[in-house]
Nucleic acid binder design. Structure first.
Lengths: 222, 222
DNA sequence: CGCCCGGATGAGAGTCCTCTCACGTCCGCC
DNA sequence: GGCGGACGTGAGAGGACTCTCATCCGGGCG
């Protein structure tokens, strides 16, 4: 049976996660502090580690760092605070495979757990995140961040941003964007694209979206 | 380079798909009718087939059937009409790997193409669809169908339905559902769950959602 | 039989989202 | 410098979504 180690000191959250994972058919163990988590993670008995950032004794980052220093490649999903996206970035760079921001819906966590436990695949975090410069899009939660600061985008805004991020530095015509994001049967005379580019500029930084007169728009790289 | 065969007779749509896929780095060929599509698909030169249902000469289902009869396991994504979900079900049962309903946004198609082309994985359609009896949830488009009839669910409604579909026949307490779907820090005194169960009953059929007095709700199986 | 409690239901407030429209502004060309 | 077309911008209509609240209903138990 698949075993998951939960490193979380807040009893309420730990219990909540444990109950849910057990209902989902996983075996679970709770480590209430960083030192215990590190010991258990090194035992080879677990298939995945859910790692809270704010652990007593030894914080999540330290646990992760030491684990990786010991050449342990156990998949790690970090639990970070919503308002501190910097943690997220640091976590991914520090060798975490994925992350979930608190407070989270259980299904959100479960989706990521399932993804990481799929056999025969070596995902290194990038699959779920599109990035260009300081811009970051999380395709699983459809969430965006600029320079570590989380930004909330509507569904349409996200789709448009995604289209740009998939072709960084490339000029995209209004027609291309319309069919990509809105669908091929949308009225070509509309200026929705303009309006939504404006929204993105406001939320993600105007300097990132260059207009190419007579052609369309381009995501400035770097 | 990855090659995709586009079996589509409507020139406008074929061109739209082709342009997008080429921009995405795929090589493409268009087959304007079923017979050509079948011939080309059998040539072994393609990695994926996008197959429209309404093709001249030989409709999509026939192409798919003959292809599978010839023991050809080429991944197939079908293009079906939005209002005819029966096609979808029939298509999946007939050996299609996935489907997209028209009219579609290009990014939607692309996401499925990427999924099917991931190396080293054998996905047989089920991964993206949860089903119990006549109920069907498509996790990629977050779209639902009852007995082949497409039903539109809001985001919350879909999440709740998903929670039920993941534990068919099992009693789920309001608290479980609240933390699963709404998050662990949601006011437990609320009756949102009741209200949303009602919405699901209205949209998906009341008989499917059984209330267990004093305990919670259960999805009736079968 | 009547009460009580859990559940069902209808209405609606507040919010967000999407898109349109009318108008202001700016660039580039003549 | 002036003009025209392309782009930017603000306002807002219309609709969908989420959730709350008050009230109704109905079954089981005393």
């Amino acid at each position: 049976m698949t075993s998951i180690l939960i490193a979380e000191d807040e009893a309420r959250i730990a219990a909540f996660v444990e109950k849910g994972l057990r209902a989902g058919g996983y075996a679970t163990t709770i480590a209430p502090d960083g030192r215990t988590a590190l010991d258990l993670a090194g035992s080879g008995m677990f298939d995945l580690l859910l790692l809270d950032v704010g652990l007593p004794e030894l914080d999540g980052f330290s646990v992760l760092r030491r684990l990786r220093q010991a050449r342990n490649s156990l998949p790690v999903i970090m639990l970070t605070a919503r308002d501190d996206v910097t943690d997220t970035v640091a976590g991914l760079e520090g060798g975490a495979d994925d992350y979930v921001t608190k407070p989270f819906r259980f299904e959100e966590l479960l989706a990521r757990v399932r993804l990481r436990l799929r056999p025969g695949e070596d995902r290194t975090g990038e699959v779920t995140v599109l990035a260009s410069g300081e811009l970051q899009l999380d395709l699983l939660t459809r969430t965006a961040a600029v320079a570590g600061r989380s930004v909330s985008l509507s569904s349409r805004e996200f789709s448009l941003a995604e289209a740009f991020l998939r072709h960084p530095g490339q000029v995209l015509s209004r027609e291309q964007l319309l069919s990509s994001v809105w669908g091929y049967d949308f009225d070509p005379g509309s200026n929705v694209v303009d309006v939504y580019v404006r929204y993105l500029r406001k939320k993600l930084g105007a300097e990132r979206f260059e207009t190419v007169r007579g052609m369309g728009y381009r995501l400035r790289t770097g």
